[in-house]
Computed example of a mutant assay.
Amino acid sequence: MGERRRPAWWRRAAASGGGLVLALAPAGAAVAAPAPHSSPAGGVPVCRVRDSRLTEISGMVATANGLVVVNDSADEEARRRIFFLTADCRVTRAVRYPSRPRDTEDLAVGADGTIWVADIGDNDQSRQTVAVWKLPPGGDRPVLHRLTYPDGPHDAEALLLTGDGRPLIITKQGGAAGIYAPTRDLVPGATVPMARRGQVRLPGTDTSNPSGFLGRAVVTGAATAPDGRRVVLRTYADAFQFDVPDDDVVGAITSGTPRVVPLPDEPQGESIAYTPDGRFLLTVSESADQPPGTRPTILRYPVPGPARATGAPTAPVSRSPVPAVPPRSDLPRLLGGLGVLGAGLLGVGLVRTVRSRRTRR
């Protein structure tokens, strides 16, 4: 999320006072134990993106020829491209859009090699339509397809493809992300309504990340494995891989039990992709200069192996005690909101104390 405003879901939570805390952990309710982890902490660096145009990478896919990435909503025209990279992160091609995209947040690649760009970000939840752009293999002009939600605007950053090549949009709501799908075939230039197909509730973890518990709650990216038999959703902190039986992606992510891959302390992790052989997950953080002077780095994590496909618990991974550098766009606003919330709760407690003392007198 490249905008410098608080997302709507955060503003609503902060405005409700203690509602944010209560929604995540109601008073007296048992808190779910962290999900078992199945991957070593920390990714292996693959390559560093040095092109100055790529400063807010929000979507990525891997192909046999290298990588494809997009920026978040970019103010500079030169950054509003679909960038093709070699395996060592050198930009070889940059494809323009025929019109300005609003907020590109994720990428997917179809079985035929078509690149799908998810123009679905909406921090203020004010867009009347969202969109996906389709770029055919070797093409130089992506085609726009507009979509509408059935229940009002949503902020979203994750795109999946079903076995028959239909897009699924997963919203960013913390704790219960909605799943939306087109009700009919997409038509270039036309607007197609979507239907809500369910919601995703990801298990809790304790993975260290700059945004704390909020970073473990919101869906920031997704990917479909090359064989279509697995999909993965990610937060700022973790990746959750689901098995997909019978090509039922919606059923898999709404009722399946994911295997968790911790992605600890990524500066602002929003992108995730499978390698073409399906053996690894690739990630990259949106923010450059985190810490100052650094460039976005592609990280590689092993996919949970077949021996753990049954979801059997594995030993939890220890967490690094070293604090991570906060992302420049999100964390200051989150911490500011938490500070206001904490001050409000403290004030309520002081008022109650004074009243109690007056009553006793």
Rank of each mutant, 00 (worst) to 15 (best):
T129I: 01
T310N: 14
R102A: 12
L202R: 02
Q173I: 00
V354K: 03
G347Q: 03
D155I: 05
R308V: 01
F213Y: 13
S356Q: 15
R259L: 04
A33W: 08
R319P: 01
G311F: 10
T254E: 04
A237F: 07
G66D: 13
D243S: 15
T171P: 08
S255D: 15
A158F: 03
P136G: 04
V143M: 05
L335Q: 04
C89E: 10
R48K: 14
D243N: 15
T275K: 00
P193Q: 13
G204F: 06
W133F: 04
A176P: 07
D155E: 13
D265E: 12
A111M: 13
H145F: 12
G2N: 14
G278H: 08
P7C: 03
L263S: 04
L135R: 05
G152T: 10
V187W: 05
T104G: 03
A324F: 07
V322K: 11
A307R: 11
R80Y: 02
Y149P: 02
P167H: 07
G110H: 08
P136D: 07
R90W: 02
T275F: 05
V303E: 09
I253D: 09
G59N: 04
R141K: 11
Y236V: 04
T310R: 12
R295A: 14
T297N: 08
S73G: 12
L85M: 08
R50Q: 15
P327M: 00
D75L: 12
R360T: 01
G342C: 13
S38V: 08
E77G: 09
S208F: 09
A94C: 08
A15S: 15
V46R: 10
V303T: 04
P26Y: 09
P296L: 00
G121A: 02
I170P: 12
V284M: 02
V219W: 00
S38W: 03
F213A: 13
L186V: 09
G339Q: 10
A27L: 15
